[in-house]
Design a protein around this nucleic acid. Structure first.
Length: 446
RNA sequence: UCCUCAUUAGCUCAAUUGGCAGAGCGAGCGGCUGUUAACCGCUAGGUUCUUGGUUCGAGUCCAAGAUGAGGAGCCA
């Protein structure tokens, strides 16, 4: 028996096909019953009419519990009334068999749920169209990332997850016993290893899970999240921004190509995403501080005014990033951050040691930082000094310092947080929905 | 670590000044030939987060605690 997938129904108009999946929703209207069936590739409405079916079959359909697994045969019809993802086509049921009739106490009613309940039931929540759409877009984002990097001369070189020390001093790390070698830590970045790898491969990237034991409880933080980190030899800050621009544009373009029904089902403003191409605006940190001060001066609300307080040298908070990005309709580069708020390995701005060649890319519509990168420091003496200033153990970084001795070149790289990027593209307000099983400070279940 | 808010049926939420514990959805039963969160009728469903206190009487007031949320701090 050939099984047709719901995403392909449109190509079978007028034909009798068989699909298999799960009953997402059932409604009835006397001699008609509607099943909204989910098969992983989409959602499609199947219609049973009492007059077309045996009494017994029709009664079965009328009573089939939500989430039952079924095989349905029927004729594909085009009908604008048919809901689904993608909608517009439905199946007139001629036969149905039940693989398993689900228990009638399925906990996830088809309605809005609170965050706690939804997360406790993440294993079921995944079945709902909104979550299905977001995670499908996540899959496209990941494949677009790899596609662009692979097609542009980057080599995938995996970096370790168990590491001997922090890549930056102030961050809290997840710690584990490592046999007789003392402590090991879950990686918070693969970047330092990337810097070793460029000397063999020129342009590299690593892509994997990253761990932060920060006690951050916000809609932008997870303790386990995914990050892609490209790193390039012979690349300065300007070229880095050129690369990021093309990279992000490609990702958005792919999602627009492949996931339009998903975006529409999420209610995403697609025209906003369509603007994401070409050159992105680039402003210095100094300019950004000025802009924030101007906005703050015009703000009436005292609470908001307090949040927007800024002086040169401070890192941006979420509110700062929000008001900045609202001035533009494309992602925004802010470069040249104060040295003191950034990691130890960033190249100083020429003649301005208090600022460094770092760049963050801030997503529009208030979504904030989605990439952070920099040109890396080339002076080995200064690097050692910074290491000490950050209180990092020199022993653990011996290999890293040695990289500057043998064929050092200007090089740059950045990291992109997958969940923040997906949240922006989907218009989701919390990144916990953009990863299948989110890990937060208060949740490791399910 | 700090601030704010929340906790009542499986879920989302009401409950007036301290005075009988409610609705919608979901579930079960019945009705309806185009439903889109369908609609109509009926049925079942409660440790009001916990402990203690005030009171004739507490979902409501007081105290302590628990759990959660999203902001700050922190966050290549």
């Amino acid at each position: 028996m050939t099984i047709t997938r719901i995403k392909d129904l449109h190509a079978h108009e007028g034909e009798e096909v068989t699909i298999q999946g799960w009953v997402y929703k059932r409604t009835g209207k006397g001699k008609l019953s509607f099943l909204l069936l989910r098969d992983g590739s989409g959602f499609a409405q199947c219609v049973a009419f009492k007059g077309d079916l045996d009494e017994e079959v029709f009664e079965t359909i009328k009573r089939i519990p939500q989430e039952s697994s079924v095989v349905i045969t029927g004729t594909v019809r085009k009908d604008d009334r048919a809901p689904g993802l993608p909608g517009g086509y439905e199946l007139g049921i001629s036969a149905l068999s039940i693989i398993q009739s689900a228990a009638d106490d399925y906990p996830m009613a088809l309605k809005e749920h609170g965050a706690d309940f939804a997360l406790d039931n993440r294993h079921f929540w995944l079945r709902m169209p909104s979550q299905w759409a977001i995670l499908r877009i996540r899959a496209t984002v990941i494949s677009a990332i790899r596609e662009w990097l692979d097609d542009n001369g980057f080599t995938l070189v995996d970096t370790p997850i168990l590491t001997p020390a922090a890549a930056e001093g102030t961050t809290t790390l997840f710690e584990t016993e490592y046999f007789d070698e003392g402590k090991a830590y879950l990686a918070q970045t693969g970047q330092l290893y990337n810097e070793a790898n460029i000397f063999a491969f020129g342009k590299v990237y690593c892509f994997g899970p990253t761990f932060r034991a920060e006690k951050s409880k916000t809609r932008r933080h997870l303790t386990e999240f995914w990050m892609v980190e490209p790193e390039m030899a012979f690349c300065d800050l300007d070229e880095l921004m050129n690369v990021e621009e093309q990279f992000v544009s490609h990702i958005v373009k792919k999602v627009l190509e492949k996931n339009r029904p998903e975006l529409e089902s999420l209610g995403r403003d697609i025209s906003a995403l369509e603007k994401v191409n070409g050159e992105f605006p680039r402003i210095t940190y100094d300019k950004a501080v000025e802009m924030i001060k101007e906005i703050q001066a015009q703000t009436e609300d005292p609470e908001e005014k307090a949040f927007l307080e800024i002086e040169w040298g401070m890192d941006f908070g979420a509110r700062h990033e929000t008001v900045l990005t609202q001035q533009f309709d494309k992602p925004l580069f802010v470069y040249g951050y104060p040295t003191q708020v950034k990691a130890f390995y960033m190249e100083p701005m020429p003649g301005r040691p208090e600022a460094c060649k770092s760049v963050d890319l801030l997503a529009p519509e208030g979504y904030g930082e989605i990439t952070g990168g920099s040109e890396r420091m080339s002076d080995p003496d200064l690097l050692l000094q910074r290491l000490h200033e950050h209180g990092l153990p020199e022993e653990s970084f011996k290999w890293y310092l040695e990289l500057r001795k043998y064929g050092s070149v200007p090089h740059s790289g950045f990291g992109m947080g997958i969940e923040r990027t997906v949240a922006w593209i989907c218009g989701t307000d919390h990144i916990r929905e953009t990863i299948p099983f989110p890990r937060t400070i208060k949740r490791v279940y399910p």
